[in-house]
């Protein structure tokens, strides 16, 4: 996982629960990196999961809930560093397609070693978009959070449903976004 995500998680935790919380998460997880993150480097995926685990324990949140909350907070941060050109999208569905076709493509160009999720769009109507989320990290709840952050950002009200979820025994993860 790219360092930017760790740097932003650090920011998120400090903003939400204070300096001491991040300190105690580091103490609780004893990570190989020692919690020294820089956005230009890449760190073991396990560190993000360990940190999220620790958050859910200390704050009594379900890990999925923790991922979702972080994702929701993270969106505007990622959006700020996103390549020029994505800012013309002011609709959730259009933006989601742009993530797959433009944003993550640009991310990949800058960091050839990143592992990005793949979206396969299954169905789209005026009010509903269904897509399969594909990633070995199975961060579909983190994804939900990012989408919620996006909706907030473009000022649309949506609901996100996990039609299929790998954490619940399904073979794949399928997400539906409904505009209300």
């Amino acid at each position: 996982m790219k360092g930017i995500v760790f740097v932003k998680l650090n920011e998120f935790v400090e903003q939400t629960w204070g300096l001491a919380c991040w300190e105690s998460l580091l103490a609780a997880t004893d990570l190989p990196s020692g919690g020294i993150y820089t956005s230009v480097m890449t760190y073991d995926d396990n560190e993000i999961f360990a940190l999220i685990d620790a958050i859910s324990k200390q704050k009594s949140l379900h890990p999925f809930e923790a991922q979702k909350t972080f994702g929701q907070w993270l969106f505007k941060e990622l959006y700020a560093i996103a390549p020029a050109g994505v800012h013309q999208f002011n609709d959730v569905f259009g933006f989601l397609r742009a993530v797959q076709d433009v944003i993550h493509v640009e991310v990949k160009k800058l960091n050839p070693d990143v592992l990005l999720p793949e979206f396969e769009f299954l169905e789209e109507t005026d009010t509903a978009l269904t897509f399969e989320y594909r990633s070995p990290r199975k961060m579909n709840y983190f994804c939900e959070g990012l989408i919620l952050g996006l909706a907030e950002y473009v000022d649309q009200t949506i609901t996100v449903t996990h039609l299929l979820c790998e954490h619940k025994g399904d073979k794949k993860s399928v997400i539906r976004v409904d505009k209300c």
């Binding site: 300096l19 020692g34 020294i36 820089t38 230009v40 480097m41």
Partner: peptide
């Protein structure tokens, strides 16, 4: 103390980032 530790980490991170650069 927390801030001091944080700064230490930030410095270390900056060094890492610079050597990475």
């Amino acid at each position: 103390e927390l801030l001091r530790r944080k700064i230490a980490r930030e410095i270390k991170a900056r060094e890492l980032a610079e050597s990475q650069l």
